[in-house]
Design a protein around this nucleic acid. Structure first.
Length: 775
RNA sequence: UGGCCCGUGGUCUAAUGGCAGGACACCGGUCUUUGGAACCGGGGGUGGUGGUUCGACUCCACCCGGGCCAACCA
């Protein structure tokens, strides 16, 4: 069974927020689908994340919020389907069912606040004009002629928009931010549009509808959500999310948006737009077609909620873009169904077998377990046996490939739970196709014996008694598309023509008769099957193949030469691309673009700064000024000042969103460099000082005084600690002395830990080398 | 000469600056009345180049590669 691993980055953030009391110990997430289609595997990841996190914390909540701000596409039946699918997955929102459309009045009031603050305006441009003036990713936009309307006019217009006085498209409400903003989302985003359409819940109450960016953050805020988790494509929208909350003075603490990578499965599309196209184009049996990646389709196919949750746990939560192979879903399904699905025999492609030496009138019934012994679940089924049987055509080969373990002319095979037979004669029709096998029973004295008393055989196959078999329809489902990444422009062409193969004449063992819809079986040696909840009934049994069994035979049966090399795989990199292709290795100064930077570079290098550091330094005017100011105090330290600036300071400045640089006094920087160069402090101590300088904005002397900068450099003490570590981890020491030199860091790390960071690592390093052997 | 984000075995994902680990897949073996399951074992990885550091997957710079953004959709 699969078990979940460690914390992902989102859970880590939440744990930290809990610790710092940022949200007063509250954890409130939300799952906010738009009810314009069916939920799919991609949503499952978000559901598992949001509801999962809520369930992990006492008092945690996850809201189900229907993000229904677009009257054109949304329908009540989709809401019901979504609720059903989420419950089926095993999650519950309790009382916390919300609709963004219920906030329309509050949202409207917030819009008025923005207008009154001069931060929103009514733009009466056409859609085309707005688009044109937005500019492009490389070109700044230009202001709308309506951008400077006064508040009264804006308010009047907006109120009349709300009153329904204007036709669709005549006006929009926009935030007044910056038409030249580098982030396109911030170029005066639209807040409201006019839409005279009937909303599935609000009817005709509203002629204006809020846009996603406006509605989403405010809905989160209204619901007092703490952690607003969404997929990566909303990264650019985080800025407007925060801007709006800030400028409507949303109550604090405010919800924070965090993005994670969506679940992208190979051979699958998860775009509601494209899925709808398949449904409406009649390419599938509906939103719940067993080939569809919708939760409804997966459910109808026989995929279990447990398997989907396992899949979500397996893929984890991270920010890296990823594609997940179907193998993981298949593993999760098999892993779950293996111990749940009762076994049955089902012959997909029947081939008649007559046991010539078995009496026609004899009625023997064998007993087989419902689940194999290793599943450890009691229960049996009856398998009637007789003279005329059917086996699967694939289990007989007249000209078997090497390694074929099943029935061949003159060969033997075990009929599972029954007896061993030998194929004596092969009957064919006029076209040469095999129609019937005549066989004899070899261990008739003890048929059905538990142990292999009879002749030794390599193969064991399933079978059904001809006159007791139950006819069933079997649907063999395969991947929906022929390519892992279906093209979004023509998905119909990319569809796998064999994504559904209907087998009308399959024959199952008698116990399968009367199977109710929605029942799992493992048809032995074939895979897991599920009686179709829609099409399967009393008189007509229909089984969907959920997934095949793992099959190590077909793999090996491939003709020699096509087996791919398993070792020494050529370095190919992610997505099959060579990521180093065309890489140019430039000297540091060659990356400088302006003549000014090059001049500064030469000057800084002449002062004793390394070329690498100089190239970084001259890119930032503030850093360069700081460098020159600090250098004046400590002319000999130009090199080390630059190193501190380039490596440590820039890191901290980035971490403080750029706020840290002004806090750093040139004098502090030069003092720091001088102290470290002079041996007063180690580099390690210097790092702690510079961190205090920047994040706390204190002086060098204050930092020196407030920090506990003592360091253990007593050799005897350090040696003792190293000895202790080595004694506790003799196997590590042995491995180190055996050549695993990376373990030196382990010993030093342990000493650092035990000394609570106070040991001098450089000295510990040297001592360790001396004690445990030279590297 | 746009901004932001992201690169860890084939795939997904871990590693307060201190042992590069796990899972799926793959290969081999044991066992087996499912060529299943289970069990044991194995190979294979930090995109590149410099720099900082006693020590870099982790910090800095550049390069390479990928993603998102120019709906009155969400």
């Amino acid at each position: 069974m699969w078990e979940r691993g460690r914390m992902d980055f989102i859970r880590t953030v939440i744990a930290k927020d809990l610790k710092t009391g940022k949200y007063g110990g509250r954890v409130v997430t939300r799952f906010p689908p738009e009810p314009n289609g069916f939920l799919h595997v991609g949503h499952a990841k978000a559901i598992c994340l949001n509801f999962g996190i809520a369930a992990e914390h006492p008092g945690g909540r996850c809201h189900l919020r229907l993000d229904d701000t677009n009257p054109d596409t949304e329908r009540a039946e989709y809401v019901e389907a979504m609720k059903r699918d989420i419950r089926w997955l095993g999650f519950d929102w309790g009382e916390h069912l919300y609709h963004a459309s219920d906030y329309f009045e509050r949202l409207y009031q917030y819009a008025l606040v923005l207008i009154d603050k001069g931060l929103a305006y009514v733009d009466s441009s056409s859609e085309a004009e707005i688009r044109e003036r937005r500019g492009s990713v490389t070109r700044p936009g230009v202001d709308s002629p309506y951008r400077d309307r006064n508040r009264e006019e804006n308010r009047d217009l907006f109120e009349r928009m709300r009153a329904g006085e204007f036709p669709d498209g005549s006006h929009v409400l926009r935030a007044r931010i910056d038409m030249a903003h580098a982030n396109m989302v911030m170029r005066d985003p639209l807040l409201y549009r006019i839409r005279h359409a009937s909303h599935y819940r609000q009817g005709d109450d509203w002629p204006i509808y809020p846009m996603y960016d406006f509605a989403h953050c405010l809905s989160d805020s209204v619901e007092r959500v703490t952690h607003s988790l969404c997929t990566l494509e909303f990264e650019n929208n985080r800025e407007i999310y925060d801007w709006l909350l800030e400028h409507v003075d949303a109550p604090r603490p405010r919800p924070e948006q965090t993005e994670f990578a969506p679940l992208v499965l190979d051979y699958v599309i998860t775009s509601k737009r494209l899925l709808r196209r398949l449904v409406e184009g009649g390419k599938v049996r509906g939103w719940d077609d067993p080939r569809m990646p919708t939760l409804a389709g997966l459910r109808r196919r026989g995929v279990t909620p447990d398997a989907i949750r396992t899949l979500c746990d397996m893929v984890g939560v991270a920010r890296a873009h990823s594609r997940v192979g179907m193998d993981k879903l298949e593993f999760a399904v098999r892993d779950d169904l293996n111990h749940k699905a009762p076994r049955a025999f089902c012959v997909l492609d029947p081939l008649k077998v007559v046991l010539t030496d078995y009496p026609e009138e004899r009625e023997q019934v064998f007993t087989a377990p419902l689940l194999p012994g290793d599943a450890d679940t009691p229960g049996t089924r009856d398998l009637p046996f007789g003279r005329v049987l059917y086996i699967d055509r694939a289990d007989f080969r007249e000209n078997p490939p090497p390694g074929f373990h099943r029935l061949v002319p003159g060969g033997t095979v075990r009929l599972k739970y029954a007896c061993v037979i030998r194929c004596d004669k092969v009957l064919k029709d006029g076209a040469g196709a095999v129609t019937e096998l005549h066989c004899s029973v070899l261990d008739q004295e003890r048929p059905g014996a538990e142990t292999a008393v009879g002749p030794r055989v390599r193969g064991t196959i399933h079978w059904v008694r001809a006159d007791r078999a139950v006819p069933v329809e079997v649907r063999l489902l395969d991947r929906m598309f022929t390519v892992a990444e279906p093209p979004t422009d023509d998905i119909v062409a990319a569809m796998n023509p064999d994504s559904e193969r209907v087998i009308a004449g399959a024959l199952a063992e008698p116990g399968v008769a009367g199977t109710p819809p929605g029942t799992h079986y493992q048809f032995e040696r074939h895979g897991y099957f599920f009686s179709d909840p829609v099409d399967s009934g009393e008189g007509h049994l229909v089984f969907n193949r959920t997934v095949t069994l793992r099959d190590s035979w077909t793999e090996r049966a491939r003709p020699t030469g096509t087996s791919s090399p398993r070792h020494g795989t050529a370095r190919s990199g992610r997505n099959g691309m060579d990521r180093d292709a065309g890489a140019r290795h430039l000297a540091p100064e060659e990356t400088l673009r302006t003549p000014g930077q090059r001049a500064n570079f030469r000057e800084v290098v002449s002062l004793g700064v390394s070329r690498a550091a100089a190239a970084s330094l001259v890119r930032s005017q503030p850093a360069l000024h700081l460098f020159h100011a600090a250098r004046a105090d400590y002319p000999d330290g130009a090199g080390s000042i630059a190193d501190w600036l380039v490596n440590e300071v820039s890191r901290l400045v980035a971490a403080t969103d750029g706020a840290g640089l002004e806090l750093l006094e040139p004098g502090a920087l030069s003092s720091l460099a001088r102290a470290v160069d002079g041996g007063e402090f180690s580099h390690r101590q210097g790092r702690r000082i510079v961190e205090a300088l920047i994040t706390r904005g204190i002086s060098f002397e204050e930092a020196r005084a407030s920090l506990d900068l003592t360091e253990i450099d007593d050799e005897a003490m350090l040696s003792a600690m190293l000895r202790q570590v080595a004694d506790e981890y003799p196997e590590k020491l042995a491995a180190y002395q055996d050549g695993q030199h990376g373990l030196l860091g382990f010993f030093v790390g342990q000493v650092m830990r035990r000394s609570r960071g106070k040991a001098d690592p450089r000295k510990a390093n040297e001592l360790a080398k001396g004690m445990f052997g030279p590297t």
